[in-house]
Design a protein around this nucleic acid. Structure first.
Length: 739
DNA sequence: TGCGTTGACCCTGGA
DNA sequence: GGTCAACGCA
């Protein structure tokens, strides 16, 4: 393949060693900006060039967008036919693909539903209600987090119960068991199942295990540092037959520990795969010398790392800049001015991005940029398929594809209004539970209608619903567009949008976008790409369930991107603004108590910094308005993030705030503590992240500080527990490091 | 009995 | 600013 040769000659020696690795397990430690995507694609291209069947190559990417881009690159190198035959996708998408093929063996309907977070919470909420769990302490989200943790560690409800040390844990185990039963009855899997069920299949079914471990000749994994235990097991099982496992990762960029990512997958790779080779990519091709030095200095503060030193042939470039703003509006203004200045100098907007820790921070930026007429796009927040109107219509499609899908059914059963409410729902659930196996709600409703057990009004509504679903089911074999058009017509969905004021136009546009997305499925079908006729809807729904907002990013539009640091992973920009660099925000308050979580926050900051090629602006706000417990907005002050101070002084220009009150400079009294001056009554030492002393409770760490009617109210972690105390009862607690 | 309204509580990140 | 349960009206 001559197409491919020039690619290899462009590689540095380490990159080439990875690409030309003869076989067997290989761990590539790829620092930020070291060209790992090139290495991965070159590796695949080389495998294909050397005669490996593209159908026998499986590559895991972190996002659907990364999968699409990788496929496109490979297509340019080796042609469309081979690129299409590759298995490239996220763990979840690959899990769906395998499980759809194995549905019968796994005991699933072929078109199983995929429950998203909202569906999951609905299930858990119902269970909690049934068990009469007190709301406080048993929030659905909390229960679900525990269940998800268990699943990504491959712990079953029975095992969970056996290991449960406390009454709370035993309750979780009980909910977990009921949750699993509910999903089974609904023919549904959640995100964690998409991985765990593949592992279980290969472990428990020797024939399937052998077949899939031979199915591929090469397995490749990108962003390996963010795989969890279940994903590790899936990789291990799929590579067991041949041992050709090529993983690329960077321990310094592991930022999904909260989602179960297990860094030991990287650190113990050589133990898990004996004879593994190791290649390090340490030459950075992205960032200027100053940015790279800053990033290296920051990450050097972490202890849990393999250790590496990125170097670059690039010039030093401009120094990084830090600006302390008075509040979040002032911060947004400064960022806007920075963007203005770049534009005035001829820079494109799409070469810049604003990164932040929490999605809520986008609001102030949004209004400032909108007011200034700077084009921007927010990535994240409410993703397209999570919007109400889109979810409503997708729920109809789900109900058509999978009649057992309870979450979808309950979403649409009274939409539009059919006079069906809680009372009827209770009867449906009772009817469903009266049979073994338990009936799907839709079947139970049909039974109630048949038995004449409903009031006239409820029966009329139910009949209308069941007839609509039956009619749509009858259209499944035809074009998806026709089915969708009929759905809109019969539900009068667009008309119902008009009734609700200003957002109607936007919602209507979203419905149209959904229609357009469905049309592309039909087009793919026409081009012979779908697996089998009639599957197009199910395939579309699986894609929709796994789609993220970041996947929709397209090149070419000239706008500034606003996104979380998590979402920025894998991207790069000429100029990067990192906003909200305050203790309690970045690092986030929830991480201040644990060394390992704090190190993860530092890695997140490192990831953010290393997105930049030429220019970095760091910002913080002395006061930030936040929603607080107790209700309403309060101003809360904080210290400047420790991460800013970890950047060597010579690399960083600090700007004074317009009012020039807090200096934000290290070393001059409490100047590092802008929040310290929050209001006249504020105790200067009681800022987030500070160690303080309390007469009664002793030494503690301030987790939160906010201005209340009685002065500065602080949430402080003492040895005896977390307490809420007034700032004036606190005194300085000595050095910053709570032993 | 359904439905609209009110009030309590929440909020890190995301496949 | 958003969600959800409780409440009271039609």
């Amino acid at each position: 393949m001559t197409l491919f040769t020039p690619v290899v000659s462009d590689l540095n020696p380490e990159q080439r060693a990875a690409v030309e690795h003869p076989g067997g397990p290989l761990l590539v430690i790829a620092g930020a900006g070291s060209g790992k995507t090139r290495v991965l694609t070159a590796r695949i291209a080389r495998l294909l060039a050397s005669g490996v069947d593209p159908r026998a190559v499986l590559a895991f990417t972190f996002t659907n967008r990364a999968a699409r881009e990788m496929r496109e690159r490979i297509e340019r190198a080796v042609g469309a036919a081979a690129a299409r035959a590759l298995w490239v996708g996220t763990f979840h998408a690959t899990g769906v693909r395998i499980l759809r093929q194995e549905a019968a063996r796994v005991g699933l309907p072929r078109d199983f539903a995929i429950y998203d977070r909202e569906d999951q919470e609905g299930v858990v909420r119902d269970i909690a209600r049934r068990l009469a769990l007190p709301e406080a302490g048993y929030r659905p989200a909390l229960l679900l987090d525990r269940i998800s943790d268990a699943k990504s560690a491959l712990v079953s409800p029975a095992e969970f119960e056996r290991l449960a040390p406390s009454p709370f844990e035993r309750r979780v185990a009980e909910v977990y068991g009921l949750y699993e039963a509910e999903l089974r009855a609904s023919g549904a899997l959640d995100f964690d199942d998409l991985i765990a069920r593949v592992v279980a299949l290969m472990r428990d079914d020797p024939e399937a295990g052998a077949r899939w471990s031979r199915r591929f000749a090469h397995v490749l994994v990108d962003e390996y540092q963010d795989t969890n235990h279940a994903q590790f097991r899936m990789v291990q099982a799929l590579a067991a037959g041949h041992g050709n496992l090529f993983v690329v990762g960077d321990d310094d960029q592991s930022i999904y520990g909260w989602r179960g990512a297990d860094l030991s997958n990287v650190l113990d790779f050589e133990r898990a795969f004996p004879g593994a080779a190791l290649v390090r990519l340490e030459q950075n091709y992205r960032s200027s010398g100053n940015i790279l030095r800053a990033a290296n200095a920051v990450i050097a503060n972490n202890r849990a790392r393999k250790g590496k030193n990125l170097w670059s042939e690039r010039e030093d470039g401009a120094r990084l800049r830090f600006a302390l703003a008075a509040d979040e509006a002032d911060e947004a203004r400064r960022i806007r001015r920075f963007l203005d200045a770049r534009a005035a100098a001829g820079g494109r907007y799409d070469e810049a991005a604003v990164l932040y820790r929490t999605n809520a921070q986008s609001r102030a930026l949004e209004s400032e940029l909108r007011g200034a007429g700077i084009p921007f796009e927010i990535v994240g927040g409410v993703a397209f398929y999570q919007r109400r109107e889109v979810k409503d219509l997708v729920a109809y499609l789900r109900a058509v594809v999978n009649p057992a899908d309870a979450a979808a059914f309950w979403r649409i059963w009274n939409l539009p209004r059919r006079g069906l409410g809680d009372a009827v729902r209770a009867r449906v659930e009772a009817r469903a539970a009266a049979e073994r196996p338990v009936l799907a709600p839709r079947a139970a409703l049909a039974a109630l209608v048949r038995e004449g057990a409903l009031t006239r009004a409820a029966a009329a509504g139910a009949t209308d619903l069941l007839a609509l679903l039956a009619e749509l089911e009858g259209m499944r074999a035809g074009p998806v567009e026709e089915l969708f058009a009929r759905l809109l017509e019969r539900t009068r969905y667009l008309e119902s949008l008009d009734e609700e004021a200003e957002s109607a136009a936007e919602r209507r546009a979203n419905v149209e976008e959904l229609a357009a997305a469905l049309a592309t499925v039909s087009a793919r079908e026409a081009a012979g790409e779908a697996e089998a006729p009639g599957d197009r809807l199910a395939a579309f729904l699986a894609d929709a369930a796994l789609a993220t907002d970041a996947d929709r990013l397209e090149e070419g539009a000239d706008r500034v991107l606003l996104l979380t640091a998590h979402n920025a992973k894998g991207l790069e920009f000429a100029a990067v603004v990192i906003a909200g660099l305050e203790e309690g925000l970045m690092p986030h308050a929830s991480a201040l108590e644990s060394d390992s979580e704090l190190e993860e926050e530092r890695r997140l900051f490192y990831v953010a910094l290393t997105r930049a090629r030429d220019e970095v602006l760091l910002t913080a706000a002395a006061y930030r308005r936040r929603f607080a417990p107790g209700g309403g907005m309060v101003a809360s002050g904080a210290r400047i993030s420790r991460f800013v101070d970890e950047i060597p002084a010579g690399l960083l220009d600090r700007e004074r705030p317009a009012g020039a009150r807090p200096t934000g400079r290290s070393g001059d009294g409490d100047g590092r503590s802008p929040g310290a001056t929050a209001g006249s009554r504020g105790a200067t030492h009681a800022a987030v992240g500070r160690v303080v002393y309390h007469e009664q409770f002793g030494r503690g760490l301030v987790l939160e500080a906010e201005e209340g009617s009685g002065g500065l109210k602080c949430t402080v972690r003492f040895a005896s527990g977390v307490k809420r105390v007034l700032g004036r009862f606190l005194s300085p607690g000595g050095h910053d490091d709570p032993a």
